[in-house]
Amino acid sequence: MRLSSLADYAVVMMRAASRHCGAARVSATDLAQETGIPLPTAQKLVSLLTRAGLIKSVRGTGGGITLARPAAAISLAEIIEAVEGPIAMTSCVESGRHDCALEGSCAVQPHWGVVNEAVRGALGGVSLASLSSAAPALPRSAPLAVSGALS
């Protein structure tokens, strides 16, 4: 399981934007230069993150971007979902999806929801503020126990 480069860049860019909180707005160009993310990618991320309500973007002179909420109130899960869509370990976890050849006879399918929620919960427990600290922080809440869930 691996995040796309775009989701990874979104996290990097949001961390950089969080360091500018309280200051004047920062431009996508400044964030691109600060992070090494190519400007077209940074501009695409500004659009996706604005649409998700994670940043506010103002165009024109004196414009730029700011976080829409405090960094402590933005989770890693929200940033990833802004770029990737809902976190789903398998397609059978997504509502409305019925494209698995094993559907109807799969003994594991009923348990994927628990696994998916554990992963989503772990990502949801990591705040943007904790990504800006010097040392990695433990998630705000412990992930769900999945021991024995797939037996």
Rank of each mutant, 00 (worst) to 15 (best):
T61G: 12
T61P: 14
G104D: 04
G36Q: 06
P38Y: 05
A71N: 08
A52E: 06
A28C: 06
A52K: 07
A23H: 15
Q109E: 13
I55F: 04
S18Q: 05
A118C: 10
A137V: 04
C106M: 10
P70H: 14
G60W: 03
G124T: 09
A16I: 05
R59A: 15
E78H: 07
V114M: 09
G22L: 04
S133F: 03
N116W: 09
Q43T: 14
A107V: 15
S132L: 06
S127L: 01
Q109C: 11
T35G: 02
P136N: 03
P110A: 13
A32E: 00
G104H: 07
I55C: 06
V11T: 09
K44L: 14
S47A: 13
A77T: 02
A129F: 03
T35K: 00
Q43H: 10
S127G: 06
V46T: 10
I80D: 02
S130F: 05
A73I: 04
P38W: 01
E103M: 14
T61L: 13
T66F: 05
M14D: 04
A73D: 11
P110D: 12
S75M: 01
A107E: 14
A68L: 00
G63T: 07
L102V: 13
A17L: 09
R51M: 13
N116R: 07
L45I: 07
R19K: 12
A68I: 05
A73F: 05
A24L: 11
